[in-house]
Amino acid sequence: MALTLRWRSSTTLPVDGSPLKPETFRERTSADAARVALRVGNATADVGDLFEIEGDAADGALVVEGDLTHVDKLGRGMATGSLKVRGDVGPRLGAEMAGGLLDLDGSCGDWAGAEMAGGVLRIRGDAGNSLGAAYPGSRRGMREGLILVGGSAGDDVGLLMRRGAIGVKGAVGAGLGRNMIAGTIYACGAVGAMPGAGMKRGSLVLSGLGEDAERSLSPTFHFAVRLPVPILGVYASLFHGHGFVVPPSVSSAEVDRYNGDLAVGGQGEILVAVPPSTLRLISPH
């Protein structure tokens, strides 16, 4: 079976989970895995002190289970293999990851997938603020890869995003795609204030605005045209391959295109699902 780490510690100190990724444990026995050091507060502890260990990492797969809310940076910088996490985790899950598959069956804190450079990050619960975003002072957020969230996400999703794709099934907070440089973000639920503010290029695909689009978007976005966008079907197929189903209203039908942010050149776009038409029955009386 895959190398499995089951959380057994009761510590409330922050644990640096950066070493908890498949490449750390490649070709290690269970005994060797137990001696990997983790930072706990201002001290260190061995993996074997914090986790029960079972299986081996011969197949490049790692499973981590338990209440991991005090563990941050889990899977940070992972470049290969498969990491399955069962339970809620702290901030910076999969931050700076460059490859492989990180699949979280739970929710996570802020900065998940921050400055991601490749791979797939699948979050089946909720994500915090700054999903796929740039760190404070950095000039680029997510640069490649795919992030999919089955629940909701907080503010500043895709801040300074450079490339790649993000999909969020539930609601997102304010500042979606803020200062976005390029890339694509799907938001299937409600959207917070000022989506796309300061975006230079890239695409925001919004299926939850409906008839509120004009009131929800910044006045620096200008309605351009209603049209079908075939590339949305390609993204829908990509997402579906990872268990994320995009609403048909933004995968196969016409959408309203808004160009912006005009304050910074207006080369980005927000694509809004067209509300379904309704039939009104008029009484002959």
Score class of each variant (00 low, 15 high):
residue 50 L to Q: 04
residue 259 N to V: 14
residue 53 I to S: 10
residue 73 K to D: 14
residue 85 V to D: 06
residue 91 P to C: 07
residue 21 K to V: 04
residue 111 W to R: 07
residue 126 D to R: 10
residue 251 S to T: 12
residue 54 E to T: 08
residue 260 G to H: 09
residue 136 P to V: 09
residue 152 S to Q: 11
residue 86 R to V: 15
residue 42 N to K: 11
residue 204 L to R: 09
residue 70 H to K: 12
residue 170 G to A: 10
residue 73 K to F: 12
residue 183 G to T: 03
residue 96 E to D: 14
residue 116 M to A: 09
residue 136 P to G: 14
residue 188 C to E: 14
residue 204 L to C: 07
residue 243 G to Y: 11
residue 82 S to Y: 15
residue 285 H to R: 15
residue 254 E to R: 14
residue 73 K to M: 08
residue 148 L to Q: 07
residue 176 L to R: 03
residue 277 S to M: 11
residue 34 A to S: 15
residue 9 S to K: 09
residue 121 L to G: 07
residue 93 L to K: 01
residue 58 A to H: 02
residue 35 R to E: 13
residue 56 D to I: 00
residue 57 A to V: 01
residue 17 G to C: 06
residue 22 P to I: 02
residue 66 G to W: 05
residue 134 A to R: 02
residue 63 V to D: 14
residue 276 P to M: 07
residue 58 A to G: 14
residue 76 R to W: 01
residue 209 L to R: 07
residue 142 M to N: 01
residue 98 A to T: 15
residue 89 V to Q: 05
residue 199 M to A: 10
residue 23 E to C: 00
residue 25 F to E: 03
residue 131 L to F: 04
residue 49 D to C: 09
residue 262 L to S: 14
residue 249 S to A: 15
residue 249 S to L: 07
residue 180 M to H: 06
residue 13 L to P: 02
residue 192 G to R: 01
residue 207 S to F: 08
residue 70 H to A: 14
residue 95 A to L: 02
residue 105 D to H: 13
residue 120 V to D: 06
residue 193 A to T: 10
residue 160 L to T: 11
residue 223 F to Y: 13
residue 26 R to V: 13
residue 228 P to H: 03
residue 98 A to P: 09
residue 250 V to K: 11
residue 171 A to Y: 01
residue 34 A to K: 01
residue 38 L to R: 05
residue 216 S to Q: 14
residue 92 R to G: 00
residue 199 M to W: 12
residue 278 T to P: 02
residue 21 K to M: 06
residue 145 G to K: 00
residue 71 V to L: 11
residue 170 G to E: 08
residue 281 L to D: 04
residue 93 L to T: 07
residue 39 R to F: 00
residue 75 G to T: 08
residue 215 R to M: 05
residue 25 F to I: 02
residue 180 M to N: 03
residue 112 A to G: 10
residue 145 G to N: 06
residue 166 I to H: 00
residue 123 I to M: 07
residue 145 G to W: 00
residue 90 G to F: 04
residue 3 L to D: 06
residue 169 K to D: 05
residue 254 E to M: 13
residue 92 R to F: 14
residue 76 R to F: 01
residue 106 G to R: 15
residue 38 L to I: 00
residue 146 L to W: 01
residue 3 L to P: 02
residue 106 G to S: 09
residue 150 G to H: 02
residue 195 P to Y: 02
residue 225 V to E: 15
